[in-house]
Design a protein around this nucleic acid. Sequence first.
DNA 1: GTCTATAGCGAGATAGAC
DNA 2: GTCTATCTCGCTATAGAC
Lengths: 192, 192
Amino acid sequence: MPAQKITKPEILGKAIQLFRQQGYHATSIGQLARHCGIQKAHFYYYFPDGKQQILQEVLESVRTYFLERVYSIAYEKDESPVGKYERVVAKLEKVLLGGKGGCLMANTILELVHQPDFAFIKPVWKAYIEDGIEALAHLYEPVLGSEKARQQAEYFLQDIEGGLILSQLYEDNRFVRAAFERGAQAFVSPKS
Amino acid sequence: MPAQKITKPEILGKAIQLFRQQGYHATSIGQLARHCGIQKAHFYYYFPDGKQQILQEVLESVRTYFLERVYSIAYEKDESPVGKYERVVAKLEKVLLGGKGGCLMANTILELVHQPDFAFIKPVWKAYIEDGIEALAHLYEPVLGSEKARQQAEYFLQDIEGGLILSQLYEDNRFVRAAFERGAQAFVSPKS
DNA sequence: GTCTATAGCGAGATAGAC
DNA sequence: GTCTATCTCGCTATAGAC
């Protein structure tokens, strides 16, 4: 009933945009509030524990998004692994290369992973990576067997995250696309 | 003759440590000064243009270090490409996996590349990447030919940078080591 | 639920004595 | 070349009126 000006999911969406482009420390609560059209102080109504709580909820919502909207594709029935791979990759391309900022998870890992104040975020980062590895390994498993499939899945994510660094620096998506291509090759020419 | 308390190279060394672990925005000039044993205000004697100048000089010194101490190995005479590859990789392992913080260049790219105030840093980042690609391509060239060699070199750097993200998150160097291994494989089993 | 006002702190940066 | 003192600003966060 209460006619809220803006909902929490909407706030989280704006926060994702800003954190993804600018990083955590360079994004102030004031700037966040301006983009949401609310007062700075009103942020503490939605997030009583302050800025760190915003980050945590943002990252959790990103993890959930990938799980439900991207990696879930890998577990659908009645389609070949290769077909599902192509659809997962198409979705990844849209999400990671759309807009500026690449992968919020990777960005925040490199920015914050060695700062003790943010150790409580580690489980979220790890869960996000693990979700991706499991989904890709599930696709590779019929072709490579479970052990090789997991290795290939780890390598796939690593390749994409590295590609995002270069693609953002050079403003050229070919590095990430090359990783997608290498991921597809693993279906047709499994190594030894 | 003037007995300086600390030299500029020493300051840059301390700054590399802190920026590498904590990132740019999370590292304050006060903290930097404390680690150097000098007064905060005295930083403006060495770096009149402030914090951004510190970052610029730090990154330039890192680029020079890699060029002179790491990638120069690739151009030495009288050794096989594979032998030189192994020595380059050994050096990379020491530099990138020693201490905390991974690759300062990659960290700062993801933290700052979309912030207009830091656009002037882009040439330094690109030069650093280009140095690495050229050196590796030089090693792969005899085996792969110049076009494939450059592709493989780009992929090598991308793989390592991605591996650094995962290795730092999981505190497990195997992701980076796997990239080194894949880089070596390219000498023995060139793709098609 | 929404706003204003402001506390309290630490940041980057400057001036000037010695 | 080194240091102290200080300015100014923007940040996170809180209190409390409406």
